[in-house]
C-alpha cells in the first residue's frame, strides 16, 4: 500500500492551514508527522482519511486517486471515541461485517492481543483511559486496514501506559506490516516509532525537514543517537537555547 500526496492545500475561512504539501509513503513504512500545534498536521491526516474532502491537490492510494473514506484505511483518534452504549466486544466489532461466529472469533483474537481478555462485557464508562484506547486500537485493527492513520493516539495517556501502547503498536506492525501515518507532537514518540519523521512548521504548515531513522526496532528509548536527532528537530523548530 503506497500513499502519495501531491500539493495538498487546505483553507479554513480564508486562512491557509497547509499549503502545497507533497509526500509519499511506502508500503509498510511508519511515517511521523511532527510539529507544534497549529501547523496543520491533523488537518493533513484528516484529508488523507477522507473525513475531510475540502482540500486541494490529490491523494492516491496504490496509484488510485481517492474520493472520500477508503475501505482499507483505519483511523485511531486522539480520544478513544467508543460508542458508550456498546460493550468492549461490540465496540471492537463495530466496523466489521460478516457472519456472527467469524466476527466473534476475530474480535476474540484482537481482544486477547490488546490485553483486554475478561473485559469483553464492560461498558466504556467502566474503563480507564488506557484500556479505552486499547479498545480503540483493537477496533481499528480488527478490519485489517492496510493504512493506519493515528492522530496523537497516546497524547492523553500517562507516560507508562503510553510506552506500553507504543510497544503494542510496534508488535502489530511486526505482525501485519501495516503502513502507518502518525501525527504527534512528541519527539521521543516519533523517534521511537517512526522510520521517517516529517517535520512541519509555520502557518500555513509546510514540510521543513524529513529525517530518516535507520535504527531497527525495538529501539532504545534513551540512546545517544536519539539525543542528536532530538537536538536537530528542536533546532528546526527554534526551540534550542
Amino acid at each position: 500500500m503506497t500513499l502519495v500526496l501531491e500539493n495538498i492545500s487546505r483553507r479554513f475561512a480564508d486562512v491557509d492551514v497547509i499549503k502545497d504539501i507533497s509526500l509519499s509513503v511506502e508500503k509498510g513504512e511508519i511515517v511521523g508527522l511532527l510539529g507544534t500545534s497549529g501547523c496543520g498536521k491533523s488537518t493533513l491526516l484528516r484529508a488523507i482519511s477522507g473525513l475531510d474532502q475540502d482540500y486541494r491537490g490529490t491523494i492516491a492510494i496504490n496509484g488510485q486517486v481517492i474520493q472520500g473514506v477508503h475501505a482499507t484505511t483505519g483511523f485511531i483518534f486522539q480520544e478513544p471515541r467508543l460508542l458508550p452504549w456498546l460493550t468492549v466486544q461490540d465496540n471492537i466489532t463495530f466496523g466489521i461485517k460478516g457472519k456472527q461466529q467469524a466476527v466473534f472469533d476475530r474480535a476474540k483474537r484482537f481482544i486477547e492481543y490488546v490485553g483486554l481478555t475478561g473485559k469483553e462485557n464492560l461498558y466504556p464508562r467502566q474503563l480507564s483511559g488506557g484500556m479505552a484506547q486499547r479498545v480503540a486500537i483493537a477496533r481499528a485493527l480488527v478490519t485489517s486496514p492496510e493504512i493506519l492513520l493515528l492522530d496523537e493516539p497516546f497524547s492523553a495517556l500517562d507516560a507508562f501506559t503510553k510506552m506500553q501502547l507504543q510497544d503494542l503498536l510496534l508488535e502489530i506492525w511486526e505482525k501485519y506490516q501495516t503502513t502507518m501515518v502518525l501525527v504527534t507532537h512528541d519527539i521521543d514518540e516519533a523517534l521511537y516509532l517512526c522510520d521517517r519523521i516529517v517535520v512541519l512548521r509555520d502557518q500555513p504548515g509546510r514540510i521543513i525537514k524529513t529525517i530518516r531513522v535507520e535504527q531497527q526496532h525495538p529501539r532504545n528509548r534513551g540512546s545517544v543517537e536519539f539525543a542528536h536527532y532530538k537536538t536537530d528537530i528542536l533546532n528546526q523548530l527554534d526551540f534550542s537555547q
Partner: peptide, 8 residues
C-alpha cells in the same frame, strides 16, 4: 466525533 467513527 462518533459520527466520524461511523464514517470511517
Amino acid at each position: 466525533k462518533l459520527i466520524e467513527v461511523g464514517r470511517m
